[in-house]
């Protein structure tokens, strides 16, 4: 059955007709968000990760119809000066880069929940994402540095308040 749903994708309101079985992955790719990628189709690699109302979702397992009204974030829609993106670039946290958007969004989710996350929390949060090029050390460094940047920014905000 086809239903029209409304998705708030990276702040932009999009009305899309979807069938009940349509995956969020395919709907978002159809809207041009090709940073959302199928790697396994079973929620086991993290390449299709998006944030829905701030929470990470494996879009390859998510039926789009359930996300009517949700605010969705994809890596390509992050602000130009996104702090996590900056730290991934600075740490050289990419080789082929295919899986990296998923790691970036997982990092956002973690730091929103816990800006004090250390290496153990970072590893626990990123354990479901696979980087076959083996860029994990750089990814961890990027995540640690993004957390530090987040804490420093919060501190500066407090000082100036």
């Amino acid at each position: 059955m086809s239903t029209e749903i409304t998705l708030l994708v990276n702040g932009e309101r999009r009305a899309v007709p979807v069938d009940d079985d349509d995956l969020l992955l395919d709907v978002l790719r159809g809207l041009g968000h090709t940073s959302v990628r199928e790697g396994c189709g079973v929620g086991a690699c993290g390449a299709c990760t998006v944030l829905a109302d701030g929470h990470s979702v494996s879009s390859c397992l998510a039926r789009a119809v359930r996300y009517d009204g949700a605010a969705l974030t994809t890596a390509d829609g992050l602000p130009a000066d996104d702090d996590v993106v900056e730290e991934f670039v600075a740490a050289r946290a990419m080789q082929c880069g295919y899986c990296i958007p998923g790691f970036v969004l997982m990092t956002h989710e973690l730091l929103a929940e816990n800006p004090d996350a250390g290496e153990a929390e970072i590893d626990a949060h990123l354990e479901g994402n696979i980087c076959r090029c083996g860029t994990y050390l750089e990814i961890r460094t990027a995540c640690v540095n993004a957390a530090r940047r987040r804490r420093e920014a919060a501190h500066t905000e407090k000082e100036s308040a």
């Binding site: 890596a75 390509d76 295919y98």
Partner: peptide, 16 residues
């Protein structure tokens, strides 16, 4: 040197 297309890889903008 920085990897070519580093930022567009991180943002998922590189087209495969």
């Amino acid at each position: 040197w920085g990897r070519v297309a580093a930022r567009s890889k991180v943002r998922g903008e590189l087209q495969h």
